[in-house]
């Protein structure tokens, strides 16, 4: 099915990670113009080695002035921003009772606050162009919770509430906001989880295995596209192999 994403301007965060990279590559394959926000130049260069047409913008997503400058530059360069995929995220595992306070702050900053800051800045061009689609990459832990990831799961639950509330606000402006909740997906980020609990996860997942980034990416592109999801907003789709059943 043609997702009609050709020439769409798509901004992606977290595109140097496992799921984000797959999302960036899949948008490229659909003919979209992919722009990624990066902090680590080496990781970005690794991404563009295989995908030379991807354009990068260096930005600290916790610095609102830098975000505004970046959005202004993107609009100058590309005239519009059709789709935003918020995929940047990080997890630090430790029992909550002994986790450092600055780690709690970091989890909320990376997984929730930075998404809010970037999304807020991008709403202006989307409102002016009278159209837009945003997809937030959450986590199944937002619903399920998880040992050792209390702050991360809380931030992702906040992200789900953000998706719903913003969808309510922006629907009349023809801006759709949706999300996906990946379950156990084979990436570098889930490496330790896989080593520690592969058997448990395979057993608890109805489909009996870890997912792969491609399976998440398919869901993101589906929700981002006006061809497939024009009447879907405020939804966060579980892509978890049935883990939550």
């Amino acid at each position: 099915m043609d997702l009609k994403l050709q020439d769409k301007i798509v901004l992606i965060t977290g595109a140097t990670g496992g799921i984000g990279r797959q999302i960036a590559e899949d948008f490229e394959k659909e003919g979209a113009k992919v722009l990624v926000v990066y902090r680590n130049l080496q990781k970005f260069e690794k991404l563009t080695e295989a995908n030379p047409t991807i354009t990068g913008y260096h930005c600290d997503l916790l610095k609102t002035d830098d975000i505004k400058k970046m959005i202004k530059l993107i609009v100058e360069d590309h005239k519009r921003i059709d789709i935003l995929v918020n995929c940047a995220g990080a997890v630090v595992e430790a029992p909550f009772a002994i986790v450092d306070e600055d780690q709690i702050e970091k989890m909320l900053d990376i997984n929730l606050k930075s998404v809010m800051y970037l999304t807020k800045a991008i709403l202006k061009p989307m409102v002016l162009q009278k159209e837009g689609s945003i997809v937030n990459v959450s986590s199944i832990t937002a619903q399920k919770g998880g040992r050792g990831i209390v702050a991360y799961a809380s931030a992702k639950a906040g992200l789900d509430a953000f998706t719903r509330s913003l969808a309510i606000e922006m629907g009349r402006k023809n801006i759709r906001i949706n999300g996906v909740r990946p379950g156990a997906i084979s990436t570098d980020m889930s490496k330790t989880l896989k080593e520690r609990a592969e058997n448990y996860i395979a057993e608890a997942t109805i489909l009996g295995r870890f997912g792969n980034p491609k399976e998440v990416s398919k869901g993101v592109l589906f929700l981002a596209s006006n061809e497939t999801a024009s009447f879907i907003t405020g939804t966060t789709l579980n892509i978890d192999g049935g883990f939550m059943l």
Binding site: L123, K124, V127, L128, M170, R172, K173
Partner: peptide, 13 residues
């Protein structure tokens, strides 16, 4: 208040 958002954005632009 939601109308006000694009009124302000249009004027800003």
């Amino acid at each position: 208040s939601i109308d006000l958002v694009d009124i302000l954005f249009e004027l800003e632009h």
